[in-house]
Nucleic acid binder design. Structure first.
Length: 748
DNA sequence: GAGTTTGAAACT
DNA sequence: CAGTTTCAAACTC
């Protein structure tokens, strides 16, 4: 393994310098101020991830959520301790040891531990990864197109990323896939590099070509492996692929890498939605079997994961291929034939059990999910950290309609294997698995429709191709739990779905945009936002006539936001805020009733119901803390207190940071803790609990602001997502980094 | 679980 | 843009 060449390579060009020189690096620097700002690995990484998810929101909200959730999951799942030990001791370990360790890791997850002798290079690679990752995320954007583009851009050694350029929404995945391959092939020169006996060189080439690989390399370096969670995740992905290399011959390794690259190209296709095994097969055919296969599969996995990031819906496929490891080790070793079958099988599987994990969001489905909460929780079950992030994602998922997400996603990538999802569900709550269960239903309702992640629809006539369908509206495919009839909102009909989506978007570009725009996210950042009484508003406003905006028929109420001037509702008594802001008082009784019904659980309806009545409804619920009305009340009229959403994030802790980063894409999603939207009434909700915490944790500023009388609708409803935040908050950095998003999003 | 109510989405 | 119809969620019993 240790050949002079390596040294040479290392010395000849340090990855760092190389990296800096790369156009990508420059691009990144230009694009995102965040990097410079955030030095901390973890934060950056997550934030970057988050960002990626955000973009996806536009394309497919859930996808992003899924992606993150998935990352988190895997990361969690993988035996960290093992990884650490391995990574740390990698050099010291014998081959056998390594092999065993790797095997274990793979079994646990994909994580093959790649113990690369070249710690130095690896380290450099890691750094690169950190840099690259953000880009990747950026480009992920969630739109299906973006995904494809993204990967392509990265893989190209050019470094010239064309984040947006490639995105062809109309283009089919297949086409994209083809495109993808083209670039890869064109990169032959780079490939030649791989041919070099040196692993290091080979890796480099790979790295240059694909960020993902770079990540894998980075993984090998023990130090910092764990520091950056994001890095770790990716590392896991790539590690698997690289992990086996040590065992293999140096030259052969290079070849393998090459193949891997090619395979990656195919993967990219797959991720796009096309399952072309050809690339893999070809590559494999030329090469040897098991070992290479493994490597390839690993690489593919890595790619798939990335895809997952992009797409939530397609998770199932990914799951099958990439995540198969989790299911069974044997599955991990997929022969070429298996791969082919796997693709088909994956599709079927996905069909059968499609749960967007964004929520499933994501898109976690969308964020997707039994209800997103479920998924979230499930995902989160592994680690509190993960949980938090997931939630944020989920929020993202639901709203973001990443239209493309499902289409492109489902095929590839981002798929969280349905199985995984199911597993998760099972672990967490068997009941959720059963859509029909009343609890589930209730939960779903409680959690909020917008979550998107694991929504279940019951469409009978719309074929799930209209906005009537919650799943479709959420940008996610229908899953088994759905009770829909003649459903076309499935990966098998992605063309139809995509076309329909486009059609709908042509009529209303915002059709798949989150219905509830949460400015609160912004608030988190800036104080001004806090000033705004209602942090969030319904995109279009409601048109309620009979429900007085006190029932979930009202989208505003459902979204837990107060009605705004955009609303055309009659007799608005929205507990979260009325158009006038005063209406509540008029119908205290009704409000109370409705609130009691829905919120009973939560608050002690107060010793004095009147308090609530007097309190401007809008204020209370709007913020996370707001959910807990009872709590707020004290001396100051609750109405005046606006729960700082940002505070929620803060409370969460480090995870918050991540969210913040995500916010960049769309603050709305990130900022609002899912619970708010989804489960306002329930006391159990994190929100409910959070409120107290928040109160405590809230910064003085926030509290003050909250208390200000002006809070109520001082500012016009935020129609644009994150618009305010971008301008106001210091954290905007994140927003700045996001610039690309806007372009991605056609809507606005 | 069936039936009703409701308002968004779709259609005219 | 307004009116009507369709649709599926929300709700009630």
């Amino acid at each position: 393994m240790d050949t002079p060449e390596r040294t040479q390579i290392a010395s000849s060009s340090t990855p760092a310098s190389k990296f800096e020189d790369s156009p990508v690096f420059n691009y990144i620097n230009n694009l995102s101020p965040i990097k410079p700002v955030k030095s901390s690995h973890v934060t950056q990484t997550f934030s970057s991830l988050t960002f990626s998810s955000i973009p996806s929101i536009f394309t497919s909200p859930q996808a992003s959520s899924l992606k993150e959730s998935k990352f988190l999951k895997r990361y969690q799942n993988s035996d960290i301790s093992k990884l650490q030990s391995l990574s740390g001791d990698a050099e010291g370990m014998s081959k056998d040891e390594r092999t065993q360790a790797e095997a274990e890791l793979q079994e646990n997850f994909e994580a093959g531990i790649s113990i690369t002798p070249d710690s130095i290079e690896q380290l450099c690679d890691q750094t690169e990864f950190a840099i690259e990752l953000p880009l990747t995320l950026k480009y992920d954007c969630g739109s299906p197109d973006c995904d494809t583009n993204q990967e392509i851009g990265f893989q190209r050694s050019d470094g010239t990323d064309q984040p947006q350029g490639d995105a062809n929404l109309g283009v089919k995945q297949t086409g994209q896939g083809c495109d993808w391959e083209g670039p890869v092939v064109s990169d032959t020169p780079d490939l030649l590099i791989f041919s070099s006996p040196n692993d290091a060189e080979a890796f480099r080439g790979i790295i240059q070509n694909s960020p993902g690989l770079a990540v894998g390399l980075g993984v090998s370096s023990p130090s910092g492996f764990f520091q950056n969670s994001t890095t770790n995740l990716q590392q896991n992905f790539f590690e698997v692929g690289l992990g086996e290399q040590p065992e293999m011959g140096g030259s052969s390794q290079s070849l393998e890498l090459r193949n891997a690259q090619e395979d990656l190209g195919s993967d990219g296709l797959e991720s796009i939605g096309i399952y072309s095994t050809d690339g893999l097969e070809n590559g494999l055919a030329a090469h040897e079997p098991s070992a290479e296969m493994k490597t390839l599969s690993n690489l593919q996995r890595g790619m798939r994961r990335r895809c997952l990031d992009f797409e939530t819906v397609g998770g199932h496929k990914r799951k099958v291929l990439s995540d198969s490891s989790s299911l069974s080790h044997s599955e991990n070793k997929i022969t070429t034939k298996n791969l082919q079958h796997a693709t088909s099988e994956n599709k079927q599987r996905s069909r059968s059990s499609r749960c967007i994990v964004p929520g499933i969001g994501l898109h976690l489905n969308s964020l997707a999910l039994a209800k997103r909460d479920c998924k979230v929780i499930k995902c989160g079950s592994w680690s509190s950290k993960t949980r938090v992030s997931i939630r944020a994602d989920q929020e993202l998922l639901p709203h973001p309609m990443v239209s493309s997400a499902p289409e492109k996603e489902h095929d590839e990538g981002g798929n969280i294997p349905v199985e995984d999802t199911s597993q998760t569900l099972v672990q967490l709550n068997p009941e959720e698995m059963n859509p029909n269960s009343p609890r589930k239903k209730r939960r779903k309702v409680e959690h909020g429709v917008e979550a998107g992640a694991c929504r279940r629809c019951n469409c009978k006539k719309s074929k799930c191709l209209k906005l009537y369908c919650e799943c479709f509206a959420a940008g996610v495919y229908c899953i088994e739990p759905c009770a829909c009839h003649d459903c076309f909102n499935k990966p098998t009909h992605e063309d139809t779905v995509f076309a329909t989506r486009k059609l709908i978007e042509s009529r209303n570009p915002l059709a798949f945009a989150p219905k509830v725009i949460r400015s609160s996210d912004n608030a988190e950042i800036g104080d001004e936002s806090m000033k705004t009484p209602a942090s969030a508003r319904h995109k279009r406003g409601c048109n309620c006539k009979k429900s007085s905006c006190l029932k979930k028929y009202c989208e505003c109420y459902q979204g837990r936001v107060g009605c705004s001037i955009n609303c055309r509702c009659e007799g608005c008594k929205n507990a979260f805020g009325t158009k006038d802001g005063l209406e509540c008082e008029a119908d205290e009784e009704e409000t109370e009733k409705s609130e009691n019904r829905e919120h009973d659980v939560t608050a002690p309806k107060t010793e004095n119901p009147r308090i609530e009545e007097q309190v401007p409804p809008a204020v209370l619920p709007s913020t996370p803390s707001g959910l807990s009305r009872p709590l707020v009340t004290p001396a100051i009229p609750l109405s005046k207190i606006k729960p700082p959403r940002a505070s929620f994030m803060r409370t969460i802790g480090s995870s918050i940071v991540l969210k913040g980063s995500q916010k960049v894409g769309k603050a709305e999603y990130i900022l609002h803790p899912r619970p708010k939207f989804e489960n306002p009434p329930q006391p159990n909700n994190a929100e409910d609990e959070m409120p107290q915490i928040l109160r405590v944790s809230l910064t003085p500023n926030e509290d003050i602001k909250m208390g200000s009388p002006n809070r109520k609708r001082v500012s016009p409803p935020h129609r644009e997502i994150g618009s305010s935040s971008s301008l106001r908050s210091g954290r905007r950095l994140i927003l700045q980094s996001i610039p690309s998003f806007p372009s991605l999003t056609p809507r606005h």
